[in-house]
Design a protein around this nucleic acid. Sequence first.
DNA 1: TAATATT
Length: 487
Amino acid sequence: MTSFLRVNITNTSNSSPQTFCSSGRKSPEDVDSAPALTPLSLPRTRQSACRSPCCVPMKEADAIKLFVGQIPRNLEEKDLKPIFEQFGKIYELTVIKDKYTGMHKGCAFLTYCARESALKAQSALHEQKTLPGMNRPIQVKPADSEGRGEDRKLFVGMLGKQQSDEDVKRLFEPFGTIDECTVLRGPDGTSKGCAFVKYQGHAEAQAAISTLHGSRTLPGASSSLVVKFADTEKERGLRRMQQVASQLGIFSPTMTLNFPAYNAYTQALVQQQALVAQSAYLSPVATVASLQMQQMAALNANGIIATPITASSGTNTPPTISATPVPSLPPPLGVNGYSPPTNGQQASETLYTNGVHAYQAQSPAAALDPLQQAYAGMQHYTVADTNVCVCVCVPALGPEGCNIFIYHLPQEFSDSEMLQMFLPFGNVISAKVFVDRATNQSKCFGFVSFDNPSSAQAAIQAMNGFQIGMKRLKVQLKRPKDANRPY
DNA sequence: TAATATT
């Protein structure tokens, strides 16, 4: 798993003899010169059984917490450590996971014991390297929590399609020092007509707004320039939910606001949808109906779900979701005539350093790693599902009030899809779609059990009536066993 | 005209 990382990371330090304490961890005096190939025995955080001084690192008072972005979702802390250890002793390294689904978010927080190590890592890595499977370079910069947050970041709308990062920068430079300036682009590189501009301070950003907002209409733009503070994370979430809501056509904004569980769910959906779309798995153009299905199926990205999706090529063809196990890689949606390698290994060795990229940045190949992962998960699941069907006949039951009945499931949904659908509401003990023995087809209903009644209620509240394709889910408490036979 | 992610 980590071997490809090793070969591509240059160890610039000389290798002095290492000393280890009883727990096998390096002593502090060795960490800065330790090669990246140290045995990966370190636990997730600095916590460990060994309490000797060498195992309880201290961080400097002025240490910087770094945010690390563009991390492949298959890399965990133990895989990342070697990459960052070369710049100094790590105080804490945490991959950021979704609080509801546990999904790897593709980023991490990293604190070195020494401030200097953080600065070294930032200058050596930020925008300098690309991790395997990523199509953009790694981000290593102080976390938002370290300093000013979003109060210095502007959203710039109504740009022309032709304006580059540089053009925008020139326009905004007179108001202050610009930290970052990025025109948003689609997968094909076409400008989305908007940009983000980050100043070093709030006042500069405010000045730019005052002077530039509405001040002119750029060539190719349909309206005058828009300059405003970028959405906060909270606002973004709301915006995304509203988008999903309008696409689904069933939730009013009020409802969206009033159901925290539903918020969590749509959040998860949207995150996953972005991931799946990025993998060129799905048509970027979706009908309302197909979008719903995509969002359901988008929960795939955990690598757990088995469902292959055939993307629609036109705007009116709903995608089909097949429940049939796929024994080998089917031809995924081609991008620019590109066909992905059938061997997921082959891209690993050379992708790391930008200078010797095996594939161009933004190439379709680079975008396909998540797809490979999805397929890998698919095959894994196929095996598991077979076992489940054979061995598990009676799904686990939660306590009274914790079990829900779901009807009008899409024909194609199996246990895993249903599980994913209800994960956001709590700890799922079991999820079982009932299957016709003769045909092996879903009976379109199933049961999900949570470990507590609130989760069950939240699930019912949010998902009863949820529209999928032409059907609406019926979600209610499972009747107690003795109520099943009323006479 | 809204994003690769910020415990």
